[in-house]
Design a protein around this nucleic acid. Structure first.
Length: 405
RNA sequence: GGCGCUAUCGUCUAGGGGACCAGGACGGGGCCCUCUCAAGGCCCAAACACGGGUUCGAAUCCCGUUAGCGCUACCA
C-alpha cells in the first residue's frame, strides 16, 4: 500500500517535472463556485487553466508559504483515439477533455492516475472493463504517454442494466453474489447467464459449462449493447444446470442447505449415500434452485408430515371414502414382496380396477398420505424412496387422521 | 447543457449485401405426454426505431434524426 502510494506520487511528480502536469492552487470551494456559476449560465464548465499561467516565482512563493495545491494533468492539443477490442475506433477531441487532477492536495492519487500507474507497474496488456469507463480512457491514454509507457489493449464491455433500464451498480439494484448462492443458484448457471449478457458464441448455443464457454469464447462474439438483467431467464438457466450437472457436483451444493433445514446430518448422508443421491436425482428435475430441492425433500426424511390444506380439500374431499381407499391401498401394498416400480404399479392399478375407479383416484389420495402435498414425483418413485416401512406408516397415519376428523 | 456509446420480438440474442415476408431462447398463450407437478415435444402471438442515401438488391454499408444509456468530482 505504502509502496504503491509512493509510486503514484513519483509518477505525478515525474509528470510535473516533465511539464506534462502543473500545480493548481485553486481550492475545492472556489472550483465549486465557478462550476455553479457556469451551470447557472448554462455553460459547460471546464477548468480555465489559470494556475498554469502562474509564474515560477509565484509558484515557488506559494509552495514555500505552505499553500496547499493539487497536481493537474495538462491536456495536449489534438485528438486521442484508440482501437477498442469491442467498439473498434473511438476518438475524443482533446478540447473536450479538461485538465484533470491527478494528485490531491493531501498527496493521494486520483483514480485515473492510480490505475494507470498500477497497470504499468503490473505490466497489464489488456484492460477489459465496463462501458462506463470509455470516457476515462482518453485521459488514461494521455497518462500512459506522458509516463512513456506502452499502451495496453482496451476492451469496453456493455453494461448490465436492471429491469428499469438503468445501470446496475453498488448503489442501484445491488445483490451480493453470496445472496444468489443463498437463493440456491449454481455458480455455473450464474456464470452462464451473465456471460450471455454481453457475449454470444454465435448460433443458438445457450446452456454451456464453464469449460465450454472458455473454448467457445472469442472477442468477435462480444456485444456492444447494454443488456437488461432478467431474473426469469436466470432462474430457467439455473434449472437447466440443475438437471445437467453431474450429481457428485450438485450434492455438495445442496447438502449444507439440507442440513441447515434440519432434514439430515453429514453422518446420515454418508451412511445412505446411494439412496440420498437418487433422491437428489429424483427431486432436481422439478426444481429451479437448490432451495427448491430442499423444500421438496421433507417427506423423505421426516417422521411425520403436515397435510397441505389445498391438497386435502382436493384429494381427500370425502374423508371416509379417502380413508377407505387408503386403507385398501395400505393392505395391498403390505403384501408387496419386491417393492419395485413394476410390482407397485401392477398392484395399485389392479386395486383401482377392483374398486372400479380411475387409477388417479388411488394415486392422488396416496400422494397426499405419503407427502402431504398434491404435487410430487411419480407416485411409485415416492414409494420406493420412502421404502415399505415408512410408506406403510404414512398410510396408516393418514387413515387415522381421516377417521379421527 | 457538453462529450461519448448504443439501437432486431416485452427480455437475451442469431444475422456481416441476395439463403430473411428475419432464426433460437426466456417469459406469455394453446396442444400433446401423463397418477399430480415439473421436465420434454409440438404449435401460436411478438422485432429489423425513423428518414435519407449507396447498390440491380439492404436488418446488414454511409449520413442525419430520434430515443435510451453512460461520463461530465481534490469518487472509483
Amino acid at each position: 500500500q505504502g509502496a504503491n502510494l509512493e509510486r503514484h506520487q513519483q509518477d505525478a511528480y515525474r509528470m510535473l517535472e516533465s511539464g506534462a502536469a502543473y500545480r493548481c492552487f485553486c481550492t475545492a470551494q472556489e472550483l465549486d463556485e465557478r462550476r455553479k456559476a457556469a451551470e447557472a449560465n448554462k455553460e459547460a464548465f471546464k477548468y480555465d487553466r489559470r494556475c498554469d499561467r502562474l509564474t515560477t516565482e509565484e509558484i515557488d512563493r506559494r509552495v514555500a508559504a505552505g499553500e496547499p495545491f493539487v497536481i493537474r494533468f495538462r491536456i495536449p492539443e489534438g485528438t486521442t483515439e484508440w482501437n477498442d477490442l469491442v467498439h473498434e475506433t473511438i476518438a475524443f477531441p482533446n478540447k473536450d477533455l479538461e485538465d484533470f487532477v491527478i494528485l490531491r492536495s493531501n498527496a493521494t492519487p486520483i483514480y485515473n492516475l492510480a490505475v494507470v500507474s498500477d497497470d504499468i507497474a503490473m505490466g497489464i496488456t489488456l484492460v477489459m472493463r465496463g462501458d462506463d469507463h470509455i470516457s476515462n480512457t482518453p485521459k488514461q491514454i494521455l497518462l500512459y504517454r506522458a509516463l512513456g509507457a506502452e499502451l495496453p489493449v482496451f476492451a469496453h464491455l456493455p453494461m448490465i442494466h436492471g429491469m428499469d433500464g438503468k445501470k446496475l451498480s453498488k448503489r442501484h439494484g445491488a445483490t451480493a453474489v453470496g445472496d444468489y448462492q443463498h437463493q440456491g443458484l449454481l455458480p455455473g448457471a450464474m456464470l452462464n447467464f451473465l456471460a450471455l449478457l454481453g457475449w454470444s458464441p454465435g448460433g443458438d448455443r445457450e446452456v454451456m459449462t464453464i469449460d465450454e464457454m472458455i473454448t467457445l469464447f472469442s472477442p468477435d462474439g462480444l456485444q456492444r449493447k447494454a443488456a437488461i438483467f432478467d431474473p426469469k431467464k436466470l432462474e430457467w438457466m439455473n434449472g437447466q444446470h440443475l438437471s445437467r450437472v453431474p450429481l457428485e457436483e450438485l450434492e455438495p451444493r445442496v447438502t449444507p442447505a439440507m442440513i441447515a433445514a434440519g432434514l439430515t446430518t453429514p453422518g446420515d448422508v454418508e451412511a445412505r449415500r446411494d439412496w440420498y443421491m437418487s433422491l437428489l436425482d429424483l427431486l432436481r428435475v422439478r426444481a429451479r434452485t437448490t432451495d427448491d430441492i430442499v423444500r421438496q425433500a421433507g417427506p423423505y426424511f421426516l417422521d411425520s408430515i403436515e397435510y397441505d390444506a389445498e391438497a386435502v380439500a382436493k384429494n381427500w374431499k370425502d374423508r371416509s371414502t379417502a380413508a377407505d381407499i387408503l386403507d385398501a391401498t395400505g393392505q395391498a401394498l403390505a403384501s408387496s414382496a419386491t417393492w419395485t416400480a413394476e410390482e407397485l404399479e401392477t398392484t395399485l392399478r389392479a386395486l383401482a380396477e377392483k374398486k372400479g375407479v380411475a387409477a388417479g383416484k388411488v394415486f392422488q389420495p396416496l400422494r397426499v398420505a405419503l407427502t402431504g402435498l398434491g404435487v410430487s414425483p411419480g407416485i411409485f418413485e415416492v414409494l420406493i424412496m420412502q421404502g415399505k416401512d415408512l410408506a406403510l406408516k404414512r398410510i396408516g397415519d393418514a387413515v387415522n387422521w381421516l377417521r379421527a376428523g
